[in-house]
Design a protein around this nucleic acid. Structure first.
Length: 258
DNA sequence: ATGGCCGCTTCAAGCGGA
């Protein structure tokens, strides 16, 4: 099963990119973030025509997440979850579903803005809630994948210019400690299980010709539970959609699991 | 050296992103 995550920065604008990329990548399960549309505007019919069913939770203007699954895969409707249970939050950042026996979580972690801001405090609270929930999810679903825009670059090698970024949002010690806590829960960073090209990133600022300079960060990740990690045979960043006309500032991350 | 983009709201300029 080929699983992937992609922050599309408006599904309205990127719908055709998503359809094109699904067709050319052969992805079975695609997690999307930053839909930036309310549920009634979700292009469910277009995706169904392309052979994918959708589970999502959206809102106007901001946030919004989805899971698309090839319609040949079995999905247990009864255990689809929207938002982190017990964490009251108007921001739509999490959707989870079980696809062919694999628990899939599509997550859009808060940006945090700056380490001394209210938004950063919210990011920390959100991370605490996520971790507490995942602890129980891991027990319930031995095969679990957490895919999404984490808004955390876990290590300096995930940053194009670590000196320039030191202490800033997305790379701060507090954020990295949260990522490390997920690893302590048993999660495995699928990308790091394999040999990778140096300076592989998943996001590049729209400004400053950042993509052309490869001035990016690796902030989109696929973490796998121990049992699922055992089955993982590849994980790659696919830069091609970032080269297309009017691209998202993020590009997909893809893994193959069983 | 600085900051330079993009999408959304709704038609203008501000917010949020990262």
């Amino acid at each position: 099963m080929k699983i992937a995550t992609w922050n599309v920065n408006s599904l309205n604008v990127r719908k055709q990119h998503v359809l094109d990329w699904l067709a050319q990548s052969g992805t079975d399960v695609l997690c999307l973030q930053e839909l930036k549309l309310p549920d009634e505007k979700f292009p469910r019919a277009d995706l169904e025509a392309a052979g994918y069913r959708s589970w999502f939770t959206g809102q106007k203007t901001y946030n919004g997440v989805a899971i698309l699954a090839r319609d040949t895969l079995s999905v247990d409707e009864a255990d689809v979850v929207r938002n982190i249970p017990g964490f009251d939050d108007p921001q739509q950042r999490v959707v989870a579903a079980t696809v062919d026996g694999v628990r899939i979580v599509s997550a859009y972690f808060p940006n945090g803005q700056a380490p001394d801001s209210d938004k950063f405090a919210y990011k920390m609270q959100w991370l605490d809630a996520l971790q507490a929930w995942l602890r129980t999810e891991l027990q319930r679903y031995p095969k679990l994948a957490l895919l999404g825009d984490y808004n955390i670059a876990p290590e300096d090698r995930d940053v194009h210019d670590p000196a320039k970024w030191e202490g800033q949002n997305l790379v701060s010690p507090q954020e990295r400690a949260h990522f490390a806590q997920l690893i302590e829960l048993g999660f495995v960073d699928a990308f790091r299980r394999f040999e990778q090209p140096e300076k592989t990133f998943t996001w590049w600022d729209y400004r400053m010709m950042a993509f052309r300079r490869n001035a990016g960060l690796r902030i989109d990740h696929i973490l796998l539970s121990p049992a699922l990690a055992e089955t993982c045979t590849s994980c790659e960043v696919d830069r091609t959609p970032r080269t297309w006309e009017q691209p998202s500032d993020h590009t997909p991350v893809v893994a193959v699991v069983d």
